[in-house]
């Protein structure tokens, strides 16, 4: 379990900082791997490019922003959920958008949860806390399915 981490796909460094700060309050920041765009996120998941030599294994959960350069969040989600190997990874869309079409589209693509980032920081922290408590500590992931392979 120690080797498994949270993949945070987020282009905005301020959001990354806020997210990490919030996670720090729950001692989870050291488990976070952050990538700045969708292409990097896919590289990480497929262990290619910069991440070709990372240890084998899936992240515990992916926190995915929607609006990112190069490859946007919905495209990442589509590829992950279309891939028979990657589709078991829990993906949480964590975004500013509360647009219906984004929500509907995400669920169509098979997202595991859709969470809107609150503007107020205390609420933001609260959401991060709940998300990490649930996905990191409460939820039982399909552990080692890939490892065994």
């Amino acid at each position: 379990m120690e080797t498994r981490e949270i993949l945070l796909a987020e282009d905005d460094p301020k959001d990354i900082e806020l997210t990490l700060t919030a996670l720090e309050q729950h001692n989870l920041a050291n488990k976070v791997v952050s990538v700045r765009d969708g292409a990097k996120a896919l590289d990480y998941l497929y262990r290619r490019g910069d991440y070709s030599d990372r240890p084998v294994g899936h992240p515990l959960v992916v926190f995915l922003d929607l609006k990112m350069p190069k490859v946007d969040g919905l495209e990442v989600l589509r590829q992950v959920k279309a891939d028979p190997v990657l589709k078991t990874i829990p993906v949480v869309v964590f975004t500013s958008s509360c647009q219906d079409q984004d929500i509907v589209e995400s669920y169509h693509l098979g997202v595991n949860a859709y969470v809107v980032k609150p503007v107020a920081f205390d609420k933001f922290v609260e959401v991060i806390k709940r998300l990490s408590l649930f996905w990191v500590l409460t939820n039982e992931p399909p552990s080692g399915a890939v490892n065994r392979r």
């Binding site: 301020k14 959001d15 806020l18 700060t21 929607l66 975004t95 107020a120 920081f121 933001f124």
Partner: peptide, 21 residues
């Protein structure tokens, strides 16, 4: 409106977040 919802809110969140920090 998509931009408004997404892009306008992000700086607001940052203001709120960093001021709080």
């Amino acid at each position: 409106s998509y931009s408004v919802s997404h892009d306008l809110r992000a700086p607001l969140r940052h203001i709120a977040g960093f001021v709080e920090l």
